[in-house]
Simulated assay, not measured.
Amino acid sequence: MIAGVVLAAGGGGRFGSDKRQARLPDGRTLLEASLSAFIGQVDELALVLPPEDAFGLALCRQLALRPLRCDRHRGGMGHSLACGAAWALSLPDCRGMVLGLGDMPAVKPLTVSQIAAALWRGQPVLPCHLGRAGHPRGLPASCLAGLLDLNGDAGARDAVDWSQALRLELDDLGVLLDIDREADLSGLA
């Protein structure tokens, strides 16, 4: 089984407000659009959220996702990643985890499916578009324990040897497009 984890517990300080709730041209929220690529492409899907996040919890209920409350989310992305890795490791027969970001609304579902399928090879999976590495990333089960002690702004780049990754060249510009500032939304129109 392949798990999916989407990180959405960050503060989004550069955006100026809760960017997860920003409306896209199609009417969906940024977070809803980012999650849509994962629905039906992985066996289990969880969303890492800050505690007491009414918006995130409502979205989890609506989409039948597992909410993962990260009490230490203000300490940096490393804590959120460790939370997601611990959940994936708790799943019976988990062979790996597709790790997504809650601010990447243009990733195609086929991309998530291809990353999940490639994880069965047992090595990290790095999606690329025109040679540039992006997200979501595939982490085999053998890498997950190494993520449990992450903290601060340390991410998987600090715990995984990406030089050993399977590089998937994909026709998906969405693997490179993340929304950090409100002006970035104009690129989605």
Rank of each mutant, 00 (worst) to 15 (best):
K108V: 01
L168P: 10
L168I: 12
Q41Y: 00
S17D: 12
D53T: 11
G4A: 08
M1H: 13
M97G: 03
L139D: 04
E32R: 13
Q62T: 12
S36P: 00
L30C: 08
G138N: 06
A88H: 05
P140H: 09
N151P: 00
G10F: 01
Q123T: 14
G76V: 04
A159C: 07
L35H: 10
G75A: 13
S163H: 14
L173F: 09
W162S: 15
F15D: 08
G122L: 12
V125R: 10
N151K: 15
D43H: 12
D172P: 13
T111W: 04
Q62M: 05
G138S: 12
G138F: 03
G155S: 15
L91K: 10
G152E: 06
W120I: 02
Q21S: 13
G13N: 13
C70V: 05
G16C: 09
L166S: 11
C83A: 11
A82M: 06
G100N: 04
D103W: 01
H73W: 14
R157P: 04
S113D: 03
A154I: 00
L170A: 14
W120K: 14
L170T: 14
V5G: 03
V5A: 13
R132V: 12
L30N: 09
M1T: 08
A58F: 01
W120C: 06
W162M: 13
